[in-house]
């Protein structure tokens, strides 16, 4: 959301698209780092519940600030390319979709490579699975968490900008994307990139079908209905293996 809004403000001030994208993603990444350094890592006897509540606090705080500084209306943003739509196999769609699709492919590829094929990526996975053991092996856990937080801020803001011309810019634009991303993860199974991708595809297709056959006003519901259905049938997701907790 912040990414989209910042990008929007910069583009409004007739700064070129490309530069706006870079500046706003950098700013958001820095904000993410600041949040981590000043708040999350300083929290007293942090357990999972208190960290969740804190991130909720941070997110409504940021939304509140944007709602006050900007306003609560939805603002349109022109697509980044100057040709507005493309035809492919007889289907016409906005040029912005091409950017979105390219970005998805690039980032999924990058993440897969980083997490599974490079040492820093593997270290990051190790920290997420077992922070204590990682600490014993001399890994700076706090720095790894900071890095993860900054990367997620960067990717989140980039997603915000490139989706903005499709979705409009608004103070609460992030919620639905976040939720649907979450639904996709649940459907696919957590900690499983392929699963998340397939989950996302299933939900996307179901949404388009339902808005065609049922009614477009309930389009947003489909993702969650599918998610809850999957939770009923196979709580660990469609593509997951169970893992065990140590007592």
């Amino acid at each position: 959301m912040l990414g989209g809004v910042l990008g929007f403000v910069l583009i409004q001030h007739s700064i070129p698209v490309f530069i706006s994208v870079i500046i706003s993603t950098i700013i958001v990444s820095i904000i993410a780092i600041l949040i981590h350094v000043t708040m999350l890592s300083k929290t007293k006897n942090a357990n999972e519940l208190s960290l969740i509540i804190m991130t909720i606090g941070i997110s409504i705080f940021l939304r509140g600030v944007v709602a006050v500084v900007l306003d609560k209306d939805a603002h349109p943003l022109t697509p980044f390319f100057n040709f507005s739509s493309v035809s492919l196999f007889g289907i016409t769609f906005s040029s912005q979709y091409i950017i979105v699709i390219c970005a998805v492919i690039i980032f999924v590829g990058l993440f897969y490579f980083y997490m599974n094929k490079t040492l820093p990526g593997k270290i990051m996975q190790a920290v997420s699975m077992n922070p204590l053991a990682s600490k014993i092996f001399g890994i700076d856990v706090n720095f790894q968490q900071l890095k993860a937080f900054a990367i997620s801020g960067f990717v989140g803001s980039l997603a915000g900008i490139i989706i903005a011309p499709i979705s409009f810019v608004q103070y609460d634009m992030g919620v639905m994307f976040g939720l649907k991303g979450f639904a996709a993860c649940v459907v696919g199974g957590f900690g499983n990139n392929t699963g998340a991708l397939v989950g996302g595809l299933i939900i996307g297709i179901a949404e388009s079908l339902s808005s065609g056959y049922i009614s477009s006003s309930y389009k947003d519901l489909i993702a969650f209905v599918i998610m809850i259905a999957v939770l009923f049938i196979k709580p660990s997701g469609l593509f997951s293996s169970e893992d065990v907790e140590r007592v």
Partner: peptide, 30 residues
């Protein structure tokens, strides 16, 4: 709805319950 949802833990539970709230809100709205 709680039966499947409460199999989730911590932030997953937070997201799922948030989604439930949004579903109800959107049904009421539409």
């Amino acid at each position: 709805i709680g039966y499947p949802t409460l199999k989730l833990k911590s932030h997953y539970l937070a997201m799922a319950t948030l989604a439930i709230g949004e579903i109800i809100h959107s049904v009421v709205n539409n």
